[in-house]
Amino acid sequence: MSSLPAGISHDALADLLLALADDELVLGYWDSEWTGIAPLLEEDVAMSSMAQDEIGHALAYYSLLAPHSGIDPDAYAFGRTPPEYRFARLLGHARTDWGFTIARRYLYETADAVRLESLSRSAWPELAGLTAKMRREEAYHLLHLETWFTTFMSAAPSAAERFRANLAQLWPDALDLFAPLPGEDELLRCGILPEPMSTLGARWEATVRPRLEAASVAVPLNSATLPPRSGGQHPDFSWLWNEMTMVYRLELGAVW
């Protein structure tokens, strides 16, 4: 059963699917750290539930790639060295405090919504179907974030200022979610990617930048100085990688 559009190379397919999967996997792992220590009991449950969604989405993306690469989804998730991961710089940072976590999620989820809407129109039916399903689940994440965005912005000045500073700090790294992919020309030609990443990035920025500026966030001018999708090289990630791959590395090839 192969409905994969003809003419796509494995490398180009991996460029897209590993970027998507690694973003979701690493965000899921960072945010799962709130289980047990979130500021409210309800947030413990909410953050754990959303982290489980993200890790499930990562598994689904790795599983789409697996039949074409012959590589097991677990080997993608846990069998690579930190620099081999393809997630965006936004996801390299440690979870830090609650405001930082919410600021990152706000930027990530609004960007992911733009990405998923586009991918649900992919010429590859499996990817279109999967991302259409994800959009329904992510609707709950977006509602959660809208609530927290409003809560922080109307909080005591010290909390609101810190939240604004987090958003401004993370903005350049969030743009990395829309960095051009190495195999993008091929992906576009086959219709797997319906639109260039730069188009998606501009669409996201056109909705989110005015929203942030209206909330008095000092959104920086865009500047790309670091290599694209180099989140795996962030110093914070080596700690998380060690944690999340520990069991996998303990006994390679173990069957559970």
């Binding site: 309800e42 449950v45 909410a46 539930s49 959303m50 969604d53 499930g56 689940e137 709950y140 959660h144």
Partner: peptide, 13 residues
């Protein structure tokens, strides 16, 4: 509604 997220992905409290 107490929480749109519950003990499993498909449940709210």
């Amino acid at each position: 509604l107490e929480n749109p997220f519950g003990p499993t992905l498909c449940r709210a409290i």
